Computed example of a mutant assay.
Amino acid sequence: MVVELRKKQGISQTDLASQLGIHKNVFGRYERNEVLPSIEIARKIADILDVSLDYLTGKADVQMDKNTRERILEVSKFEEEDKQHIFSVIDAFIAKRKIQSIL
């Protein structure tokens, strides 16, 4: 997962390792699943690659950009009634897209 994300963004192993403050050989071992990074390093990798930690670890199957994640987190703080209004609007857009894809 990390290899594909890193390459997709055009980041070398050396550059990513440098941003993490670790040796590239250590990072290579993470990519080969020889060792697991600490939660702190995993969080930093997710931040650098602009994915959630859940996505990075395979717990989530949808990759969201930082802006989307921040918006969802903000909505989750709303009162229930406000959340339901927002979900109604989202549901309407989803239904519209589904109809358009059929036509």
Rank of each mutant, 00 (worst) to 15 (best):
K24S: 08
Q9T: 02
K59S: 06
K98V: 03
P37Q: 03
S38G: 10
I11D: 00
S18Q: 08
E31F: 13
G21P: 06
M1P: 10
I90E: 02
Y55W: 02
E31L: 12
T57F: 15
G10R: 00
T57A: 03
I90N: 04
K77E: 07
E79F: 06
K96D: 11
V89L: 13
Q63D: 10
D47H: 01
N67Y: 13
R29K: 14
V75R: 09
Q63K: 14
S101C: 06
R71W: 14
Q84N: 13
G10L: 06
F27E: 00
G10M: 01
A17M: 00
V26E: 02
Q63M: 11
S18W: 00
S76C: 11
S52F: 08
K44F: 09
I22D: 00
R29A: 12
Q19S: 01
N33W: 10
V51A: 05
R69I: 12
F87P: 03
V26W: 09
V35D: 05
G21I: 00
H85A: 12
V51S: 02
Q19D: 00
I41F: 06
V26R: 10
V3M: 11
V3K: 15
D61A: 14
L16N: 03
L16H: 09
V75M: 15
G28S: 08
N33D: 14
G21D: 06
E79L: 07
S88D: 05
E31N: 08
I72D: 04
R43H: 03
E74C: 14
A60W: 02
L103C: 10
G28C: 13
V89A: 14
L73W: 09
A92N: 03
G58D: 13
E70F: 13
E80S: 10
H23Q: 08
V35S: 13
E4V: 13
K77G: 08
L16P: 04
S38F: 06
S88Q: 09
I22T: 04
I99V: 11
A46P: 01
K44E: 11
E81M: 03
N25I: 11
I72P: 05
T57C: 12
K24Y: 15
D15Y: 05
N25R: 07
F93A: 09
G10E: 05
S88F: 08
S88L: 05
D82R: 11
F93Y: 13
I45N: 10
K7P: 04
I86T: 01
K77N: 11
V35I: 15
L49Q: 06
R71H: 09
K44T: 01
E40V: 09
K8H: 11
E81T: 08
S12H: 04
E40Q: 05
D82C: 08
F78H: 14
